[in-house]
Design a protein around this nucleic acid. Structure first.
Lengths: 342, 342
DNA sequence: CATGGATGCTCAATCGATGCAGCAAGATTG
DNA sequence: CAATCTTGCTGCATCGATTGAGCATCCATG
């Protein structure tokens, strides 16, 4: 269809098109960026230039265009990983919502590496991003400081920071509700309720601590005390979780609070390799449609990605930059019993 | 840390830094882009300017920089979705490999929408991307034509096109191996082997057809013929799969070939709502760690994302632009029996 | 037929970084 | 001590698109 006629190697510019069309670069520019009516270019010229642009396979050079324009309309996001439904949904929803607002979304994935997070943020700023959404960052304040100096708006998502507005899930409430659910299913299926195990995350991690607080709150309500040895925080990775569980003693019947779907992979691998799966009931923070089908799984906490991103875009639109904290309630998804009660 | 001293609103440029440092913009530019030794700037000046840049929260304007430089080092990718492990792994691996090669990866997600795919490709070209990886696109040839006209290299990934090199999984081989596995497990668990159902994908979709070919080849080997009514291709979405399955008649014991993990969600929902799960054995094209734990699942086909992307980067590095086709073998992952044999 | 307005353009400065050409001051050499 | 080399810079054109200012025509009006 589009056929670059003569000069095969280089991309055509408005100067090339102007020469072919026998008009000026200004006219071509106005025609191709849609301001031609305002600039009183005739419809005939506009059509001719547009046709030539298509024939030549012209695409505007955004580097040149953005250099001149005052706004870039670029909005950046960094996410740690794409290996679970939560961050996948965040990325997809962010792109859709950004486009709906006439913004150009740029996302990059930083592998939970603090240096890569910072470098990626710096790159976004170098691309003249108008705002940056920092998702699940290890060190959001370092990025916020840099963005403040550069005059770029930042919003923290998922993990809060002290130097910019943060939109996070109500980790406390979600974890408390999930813990209640696991405890009630435990007593329903196994009789006497006993304190759960908590597995996954890091002691330095804000979300892990909030969830642990909800976990303890639900135990307190039930008059239970969790022995410190039952709280295991070796990071999020499946391997670390599985390794941390191996060789421990567990009672005949027990329950587990799993801190993320990624951790859940390790937990389930360990369970299936070493234990009679019927001895255990578990619940998991975060949603995954297949994990929801595991027979021992009594419930999952789905984070409300749409509402969270709505808050993010509201904060950006309003130009908020005080370090406020917005807590978005989670959605508890109880799962039907799939294992026979003994 | 970084503190923008006086003019709070706008980002500092090399001209601002030059004024503060009492030197010229050229010197500042050379110092900050690392060419200062070659340009015989003294270490003292370099250090002073670098300090001032940090203090002012300077970040290079890549729009201006890239406009001037001859190479952008940007490499673009479009992916359909982030809602499964396969595309998630592609995105993560692509970013890592691109960075390792000194390239700046930009990925955007196009929701399986052909117009959005094209618009996204055009945007990447406008950003002066040096190459574009088109993953799972509905209409890769339209994009390839546009890129050819603009003189930008394109590689198709996952779904092949006719106008550019394509790197795809060996869908035929993978599907044949998986079908063999399901059939053998079926006869092992249920006795007599009978033709499987095939669910998911679209009849226009290259990968679906290749997998269907492998599916039939394995049946042929076993002396079985699949009735056409057992091949159901309503798209990939869980809802469409579940809807297509409702109300059909199935024998007492049977097997299903599921065309993707996304489709698998619908299949499993339908199974759990309407059928005794013990009646069925299934296998799925694509890998998901939780889906692997479903007791009826006898095996999954993992696509070799690392090898595929290695081929993609090789093709880009070699400057290949003939429409060659590279088939990357898949990895069959048989799963242990988890349901009691009757 | 001079005047004023509308129409349909073109000119040229500009955005910020880059890099070649060149220049001044000091050091070295014949 | 003039000639040459080295060191350490600065000046300026340039990349491609944008945009305010301006300049010919043409037509209508008094």
């Amino acid at each position: 269809m589009a056929e670059n006629s003569s000069n095969s190697s280089r991309r055509p510019t408005i100067y090339d098109l102007a020469q072919i069309a026998g008009s000026s670069p200004s006219a071509v520019s106005a025609i191709l960026n849609g301001t031609w009516k305002k600039r009183r270019i005739s419809a005939a010229t506009a059509e001719r230039v547009t046709r030539i642009a298509t024939e030549q396979g012209y695409a505007v050079n955004l580097q040149a265009s953005l250099l001149r324009r005052e706004r870039s309309h670029i909005i950046g996001m960094i996410v740690p990983k794409y290996d679970n439904r939560y961050f996948g949904a965040i990325a997809e929803r962010f792109e859709t919502m950004a486009r709906a607002r006439g913004l150009f979304p740029v996302i990059t994935c930083t592998q939970r590496d603090p240096d890569l997070e910072f470098e990626a943020a710096r790159e976004m700023i170098s691309y003249q991003a108008e705002a940056l959404v920092v998702t699940g960052a290890t060190d959001p304040d370092r990025i916020a400081d840099f963005c403040a100096a550069a005059g770029v708006r930042v919003i923290n998502l998922d993990l809060p920071g002290r130097r910019a507005p943060s939109v996070v899930s109500d980790n406390f409430g979600g974890a408390r509700d999930l813990t209640r659910l696991i405890l009630s299913r435990l007593s329903q299926d196994f009789g006497a309720p006993s304190p759960l195990w908590f597995i996954g995350g890091r002691p330095q991690d804000h979300n892990t601590l909030e969830r642990l607080r909800g976990f303890h709150a639900a135990h307190d309500e039930a008059g239970l005390t969790v022995p410190p040895t039952q709280v295991i925080m070796p990071g999020y990775s499946p391997d670390k979780a599985a390794t941390a569980l191996i060789g421990r003693d567990f009672p005949a019947r027990f329950g587990i609070f799993v801190n993320s779907t990624i951790t859940m992979e390790g937990v389930v691998r360990w369970l299936s390799e070493t234990l009679d799966m019927d001895r255990v009931r578990l619940g998991c923070f975060d949603w995954d449609p297949f994990a929801a089908l595991l027979p021992q799984n009594v419930g999952m906490v789905e984070q409300d990605v749409s509402s969270m991103l709505q808050q993010v875009f509201d904060a950006i639109a309003e130009g908020r930059d005080q370090p406020t904290r917005i807590n978005v309630p989670c959605i508890l998804r109880p799962l039907p019993a799939r294992v026979g009660q003994p």
